[in-house]
Design a protein around this nucleic acid. Structure first.
Lengths: 191, 191
DNA sequence: CAAAATATGGAGACAGTCTCCACTTGTCAA
DNA sequence: TTGACAAGTGGAGACTGTCTCCATATTTTG
């Protein structure tokens, strides 16, 4: 499901060029330039751009796939070395810090999460998975409540990433994480 | 700041027609039709539409202003009759239920919250205010922690409204509210 | 009732998106 | 090497939706 067709040499080259240029622009917070112009900037024709990345989101995802994967790896690492609830806390805090430092990723993530359709959400999916795993472990260990799904946490993260360009983003986002974690640890009333 | 210029008779009539038609369409989940077509549907010229509502969001806000105000009133009512933390809980639960029943409002709110600019966020602003008030009262009463601002809650709500078209929206959204409330009641560690 | 102020509508300028296909480039078997 | 087929290219131009502009119409006012 990850790949299937061996790309021709020049095709791969163009694809790389496109991603490289996109990364460069995203780093400069240029997200809204004309798609056609972008193609020109990357030195390829419009058609080529569209063939490789049918939408803006597809391009964004390609740019941030690695970064997102790294984040997920980090989560798994924490999962392996810390009690699950602590790993979760650590991960969520890191996550916010990372988004804060990488506007482009935040922006992309917000889009990815909003796009429930097709494979677009691949990145969001990976994120969902690691959170679900952490949550399951912690619940089993009895350190967090077991009646809250990863989706709920994802919704909170969605809110957070959608707010990335707000002035006092960082402190508010941290407060959300605080709330979520405190809420998770506050074991469900057993009435 | 709410109003200032007495609108001419025909102008007011057109404005009403526009809002009425928009409400009708939103109720049918038609959000994406061409702006020009919409003008025609409402029986006014394109120019007129643009003069009254420069953007889609402006129109959406006009349509849902009352509804949002009613929601805020309800919050104040609860605030007056219940302990603040219970009022908050009640309000947030109602809020989710209401969004669930009114896709259009959810959609609009998500947009409003994303738009930090100018007066656009008037609706979101009102919401922020009532939550801040509830939070302050509850904090004073010692029933919720006092180190979390209304903004944090708004971020969670943003996530929730942005998810309104997800299949299992309702249960996930409820879980988020549960988390937020539990988190709020879990008084901050005094270390 | 005339003049001034206010509002209208819709043609058309404009900006972006995306498709299409004649042509180029790469691959592979002989 | 080379020929022939597959794979990929690029960019002109069709298309779609947004928004402006202003001659004309309607209201209001004195």
């Amino acid at each position: 499901m990850t790949d299937a067709k061996p790309l021709r040499a020049d095709a791969r080259r163009n694809r790389e060029a496109l991603i490289a240029k996109a990364r460069e622009l995203f780093a400069k917070n240029c997200f809204n330039l004309r798609f056609d112009d972008f193609a020109k900037l990357a030195g390829v024709g419009t058609g080529t751009l569209y063939r490789h990345f049918p939408t803006r989101e597809a391009l964004a995802e390609a740019v941030y796939r690695e970064e997102l994967a790294a984040l997920c790896d980090r989560a798994r690492e924490l999962h392996a070395t810390l009690p699950a609830d602590e790993a979760l806390e650590s991960f969520l805090r890191d996550f916010v810090a990372h988004l804060h430092a990488h506007q482009g990723l935040a922006r992309t993530l917000a889009t990815l999460m909003a796009t429930h359709s097709d494979t677009m959400a691949e990145g969001a999916q990976a994120l969902h998975q690691v959170i679900a795993d952490l949550l399951a472990s912690a619940a089993e260990a009895g350190t967090v409540r077991d009646d809250v799904s990863a989706d709920a946490v994802m919704i909170a993260l969605h809110g957070i990433s959608a707010t990335h360009d707000h002035p006092s983003y960082r402190s508010h986002a941290d407060q959300v994480i605080t709330l979520v974690l405190a809420g998770l640890r506050h074991t469900a009333p057993t009435d």
